[in-house]
Design a protein around this nucleic acid. Structure first.
Ligand code: ZN
Ligand code: ZN
Ligand code: ZN
Ligand code: ZN
Lengths: 137, 137
DNA sequence: CTGATTTCGACAATCATTCTCATAAGGCCT
DNA sequence: AGGCCTTATGAGAATGATTGTCGAAATCAG
């Protein structure tokens, strides 16, 4: 009866991806791939895409869609907990934030308009202190 | 001395685009294009892309990036005023909302982390009553 | 080990969006 | 209305991120 949850395998490539990911910067799949190759890995680009998606599904990594529509990933600091980010649009560095009041607000508004299956996206983007400094001198 | 603001021209195509856009549903450039052609317009796809962007820059239309990375447009109800949306992820129907408390919160958080040039994205997505009904019987 | 299943990796294929460039149209004179 | 300069259009090529294909390699049970 048990539908045998098809759990993903932790392969060498998956481990390499998890290892190269850091919990600081959001980067695109291609950027992570470049970095892996630079460090000597032979992992393929498609594998990085698939790996990142799989890891995101498992909640191991966070994924956000940038203003330009690219998907950016970084290793998740918090566990399963729901959270949002303040991200540097120059270097990708991000900090996790929560917006407790907003979570309720969202449901209240949704109910008011009879929308169901609500989800929400909250992204703060700006320029981090380092990038702001670099931008000048 | 006046830098002669290079204001965009209101061409037949721009007018057609504005006319076909409604203030109810968010649709992609391609979807609006299809609709225009269906109504007999001969406007080109690239023109629709350019027109929508131009109109978005002018604040005439709202643009949001969907979960899948596509950009969706609809005519803006409010004027210049900053606002956000609760959008149906099935049919695109959206209502404008504001989140007054959040505007301050965003700046407070940003300042706390010394991020500058802050902008934010808040999107509520769900399934509207109509689509929820259609989904069943 | 052995066979069933999943993942890999190279590369082709998609798909939204942008670019190119020759032609058409809008604005602004006279 | 006619002419001139600038911007917009349209058809199609080009781009760029992402996904699909498929034979080979890795993983896992038994
Ligand atoms: Zn930065
Ligand atoms: Zn939230
Ligand atoms: Zn709907
Ligand atoms: Zn806002």
């Amino acid at each position: 009866m048990t539908p045998t949850t098809p759990l993903p395998r932790m392969t060498r490539q998956r481990r390499e991806i998890l290892d190269v990911l850091d919990t600081r910067d959001f980067r695109s799949a291609q950027q992570w791939h470049e970095r892996l190759r630079a460090e000597g890995s032979t992992v393929g680009l498609a594998t990085v895409y698939r790996g990142l998606q799989a890891l995101a599904d498992q909640g191991e990594v966070d994924a956000v869609v940038s203003e330009s529509g690219e998907t950016l990933y970084r290793r998740c600091e918090a566990g399963e907990e729901h959270h949002h980010h303040l991200r540097c649009r120059v270097c990708g560095k991000a900090v996790e934030i929560d917006v407790p009041e907003f979570e309720d607000f969202a449901h209240r508004i949704a109910a008011q308009h009879s929308y169901v299956e609500i989800s929400h996206t909250i992204e703060l983007t700006g320029v981090c202190p380092d990038c702001a400094a670099a931008d000048k001198g």
